[in-house]
Design a protein around this nucleic acid. Sequence first.
RNA 1: GCGCGGUUAGCUCAGUUGGUAGAGCAUUCCCUUGACGUGGGAAGGGUCAGAGGUUCGAAUCCUCUAUCGCGCACCA
Length: 784
Amino acid sequence: MNEKFLKPYNSAEAEERISKLWDESGFFNPDNLPTNTGALDSDGQPRFSKPFSIILPPPNVTGTLHAGHAMMLAVQDIIIRFERMRGKKTLWLPGTDHAAIATQSKVEGIIYKEEGKRRHDLGREELLKRVEQFAQNSHDTIVSQVKAMGSSVDWSREAFTLDEIRNKAVRTAFKQMYDDGIIYRGYRIVNWDVKGQTTISDDEIVYVEQKSKLYTFRYGKTETGEPFPIPIASGRPETKVGDVAVAVHPDDARYKQYIGKEYKVNFAGTQLTIKVVGDEAAQPEFGTGAVGVTPCHSMTDWDIAERHGLRKDLIVINEVGKMTEAAGPMVAGKKIAEARTTIVEWLKSEGLLEKEEDIVQNVTTAERTGGVIEPLPKLQWFVSATKRFTQKFGPNAGKETSLKELMLGAVRANGGEIEIIPDRFEKTYLHWIENLRDWCISRQIWYGHRIPVWYRTDASGKEEVFVGVEAPQNSADGVGAWKQDEDTLDTWFSSGLWTFSTLGWPDAWDPQANGGKGGARPGTDLALYHPTDILETGRDIIFFWVARMILMSTYLIGEIPFKTVYLHGLVLDGAGKKMSKSLGNVIDPLAMKEKYGADAFRLSLIIGTGPGNDSRISDDKIKGYRNFANKLWNIARFILSNTTGESETNKPSAGILIPPAIDYDPAFSAFSDADSKLIEELDALIVEITKEMEEYKFYIVAEKLYHYAWDKLAADILEDSKKIFAAGDAAAIRSRQQFLLRALDRLLRVLHPFIPFVTEEIWSHIPKSKNRTVGLLMISEWPE
RNA sequence: GCGCGGUUAGCUCAGUUGGUAGAGCAUUCCCUUGACGUGGGAAGGGUCAGAGGUUCGAAUCCUCUAUCGCGCACCA
């Protein structure tokens, strides 16, 4: 027997060796799985013929992987290894995400800290070079971390959201959406991130509570010399120099008489024209019941202005967060905070300020840069949620629909095919879609997919727009050259294509197939692996990502991107706190692997965690599962030493009976009554956990196996075996030996998806025999 | 404001068709040289947040309350 078994399980040594074995086998790539062996899979099909696929949610190239990533990798690897053992042709496709804003702002931060330079000091080309270098380093780290966790992904198919293949997919998608009128350019109010100097979508906003003041006041004198009749309330009086109207509820008896009237008022040194309008958006209970309408600096006010045909060109705050000339001489050029002080002082001095209250205000900030968001009107590109168009591909080709309808119809709660686990998130998803507004997709940053739109001015001075997959040719007729749009696309635009851009779309797609309903070209990955079987991801990106993949996939190829969505929660520290660098409570997966082994770390991330719930992880917990790996090691040691006819130590075996060497015989049937019962028990357990595996209840399966191995097999059966071996009844000994080998064989198989390294390591030390010529555990059969 | 989730042993959590409360860690005591001290045995510890209801029977189903957390909306 191998000397290794005389020492505690050495995870570091074993993991390195096993990683190499797996790598060399090539079995992470489904193309290399051994077919034509005559064996059947769990569905009765030839083994490794029926596809099963997961596309890895691509980690951002903004840094290194954390415990949350480790959990995601563990869950997906469990699913993949389970399905592979059940005989599926399993593809787990890895990749990374360029994460446009996140990555660029991170690199900009580093450059500013180290060199004191900003974006425009470097220029587009130089900045991109630096960002790409950073992304490359980050990518390399991520790849090594994914490997370290034992993740059985197919590296030969690795993808990047910003590589050339994915860029082609993005341009193709954009073009089709533009042609269908789903993508449009519009002058609308958008979220402007002053710090990041870019627009962002509604989903990239976070509200931060802040103590602030609510001022109640009136505009200054009207043309008659009387003060403006209606008092208004505002937390941002500096924006009031941009007001064009006052909105009151149409039924509000206090103000009804003023509706429709227009006043010229003096306000902070500037002249405003204020019309009183009746609009349901004004709530009589709030403040004075009257709203000062600032169309260019508030989303809701912009909508009010739209409804009443008010002017929408009075811009009083600019892109760097300062007051414009149009704001009037008193505040022009000042920063927002200064302007507010100035205006409040002015209101006081004029006796116009009626009330000043302390309130808690939600300040709108950008998730990535932390900067304040100023709503500003800008010419940007949008994806329409509601525009009607004719579905090109799939079973519903020819039918009229909208993106919102496609997204709503895809989930099970609405009669669709996609199941979300846990199911309560289906409601969350639907609620979000129902309130969905048009998606602003253009960004004023440099790192990302350049918008595939070109402009030129024709001879008559009119702007021409070209949208295409490839750049347009410049003509030699003296007309101005085409110039590509400076902006890049929201990173989620390319992420939305991820399930099929990674499988070869658009080249693998044949629009003419199926009588014009479209289809994947035969033999391509797209044909074989799409729709993917399951999307496993964090519940925090259900809107960002899950919804957009459903959007892109159903729209572009008329197919759902995945059948099941499995959402996991956040991984918190031992005290229930979110991990963050500033708190110093971040758990580094590589450090845990070194200390306790990847298996122990994986198990600690799985046990005690249901889908969608947050989980906690601590050193103690991981340590507990490191002990389990060792327990399994010693179970194997006992079983092997009592079936090979060898003493388990080098010492002379004084007075200890060593059972004779035997060959494991899967067909052995002469079991004692006691052993028959044990077999029934174990078989029943396997049936039970197989069902739970299919229901994605990994936390329950892992715990059951843990207890079987420790409390049943080790504590009861092995102890009992010692007595049987000592008693000397040859038939009973033989029966027990066969049972033990059988139990070890079964246990290693079912534990393999959870703790792949230690199980594969033990497996490799089971002596070969006439009945046992199998190779790697990772492609062995799941016991039925 | 609307919605969702949690509240079970000191701590972290299981408990899936309602049938006399479970695990890990922690605590206390004991044991142990032949699989394993990364071990073994044992013990203590819970009116399952509260109230009401349905039921022969409720941690489990219903209603309300409290409390914590999350999402969405509002934020003039």
